[in-house]
Nucleic acid binder design. Sequence first.
DNA 1: CCCATCGATACCTTCCAGGTATCGCCGCCG
DNA 2: CGGCGGCGATACCTGGAAGGTATCGATGGG
Lengths: 282, 282
Amino acid sequence: METRELRYFVAVAEELHFGRAAQRLGMAQPPLSRAISQLERRMGAALLQRTSRSVTLTEAGVVLLHEARLVLDAVEAAEQRTRRAARAAAGRPSLVLTTKAGASTELLAKLLHAYSLQPGSIHVEVTLCGPGQQTRLLRTGHADVAILHQPFDDTAGFDVEELHTEGQVAILPAGHPLTTRTHLTSREVTDVPDLPLPRWPEPDGGYLPGPGPEVQSHTQLLQLVSLGRTMMVAPDSCRSQLRDDVVAVPVVDAAPVTTVIAWPPHSRSRAVAELVRTALQL
Amino acid sequence: METRELRYFVAVAEELHFGRAAQRLGMAQPPLSRAISQLERRMGAALLQRTSRSVTLTEAGVVLLHEARLVLDAVEAAEQRTRRAARAAAGRPSLVLTTKAGASTELLAKLLHAYSLQPGSIHVEVTLCGPGQQTRLLRTGHADVAILHQPFDDTAGFDVEELHTEGQVAILPAGHPLTTRTHLTSREVTDVPDLPLPRWPEPDGGYLPGPGPEVQSHTQLLQLVSLGRTMMVAPDSCRSQLRDDVVAVPVVDAAPVTTVIAWPPHSRSRAVAELVRTALQL
DNA sequence: CCCATCGATACCTTCCAGGTATCGCCGCCG
DNA sequence: CGGCGGCGATACCTGGAAGGTATCGATGGG
């Protein structure tokens, strides 16, 4: 199986429409149809059920879609890591760490400082990105190590070490009636009529319908909170970064958030190992 | 990057010889040379250093070799799992479990029995294979779940649950002077002049030089022990399978052996999850 | 009942993977 | 020191496969 075929299949399986998939791949529809049926013939199994009005995945197709994504990520990772190895051999080597923008700032600062003091430490590039994007960067070789937050991030397929566990707080506009409470339950928090929970973009970039405001970043969200338009639930440690126009109230039964450091299994990098060791000693 | 190119690169990187690599790939040498330099051009980095007398890997080449193997395994896994999904959709679904021949027999029997009693359990095919081969079967999608033994097997990149930890015993021919001892140290065991430790085949099928006999299987090895030609060190639980012409003596400082059940991360299979759950309840 | 939509088929063209012949480099041996 | 043999690179050619265009056949909606 060639990666080209897998790319084709993923496009069709995601679009469930040969025409659109072909457009997305920058090619005409007939060769795409042919490539897919060739793939099916070689696999000895139907991957798609087509009527002239709709395309659906068979069970085998669902499996292949999943596996193909893993393969394509691995291919991209191979490319990235090789390129970076070449650059490292030429100039000064570096390490890419990725984390959710705005999260674990303090811990990260301590870690970077402690690591920089280690003998033989190399330059650490920090890539901030939207929630849920870090694991993709790790899988595709754009990052060497990530700071993730369970249970929000999917750590399947990575090696992880736990760094820190904390509770969550609700962040409310100053002066709101709920700010007089010493603690809240998650039940109370999900259902405040005048402070609907915000909506984050879906993987496709769109938004689910709902009463809450549409947001793209934490700064934006925090501003909406201080304006009294919404509220948010976040890990304890974010309290240190709050301005005084918002108030944090513990949510007693919210799932505890564990900050972990994660890296691809099979990583051969001495620098990653050293960084992890440093993190565990904090 | 196409998988074809990666296959080519792996062949050359392993052979370190374009002619032999081409032969192994069933093609002529010139197109192979060209394909590799094309790959290098696209990666923007030298992968091999060639003189007209020798070929060596650059640092980037070492990285790509490693990554390419992962990709090729993932591709093979995609093929296998898809085919198996298709067969499962057609007929009766099944699950492939792999374990080292002769190890954890009792535990495995209990597990298979307990699982078969679960509602909704499916047929479990058991694939026995040589040591170190199980992880490859898992990575390439030929198996869904494996019984492994730490620290012997490399569990990097799999999800793992521990099932059992035990010490190790030395297995000696009956009547040997050492069998009078109540326990031994690993130091004593590695250095018995009249019972040199056996040699297992290397990944390439050959054997390292040494005094011990060359063996391919545990049955064979056990027979050599009872003939007084060698000895072996094995987990405690194997005592139940020993005949009375060999004697087991605990090795007190040997690394403890942990039996684990392992499966590919991202596994979506309900059956694997159920089997693991059953194993943990044993 | 006709039309719009969508995947499949037929047929053509282009391009690249792979083959053969050969070159250039280099270490070895007489 | 010169010829030889082994090895990777280069030059050139060919066949097949990838991709494009035109069109068909099926089907659901108006």
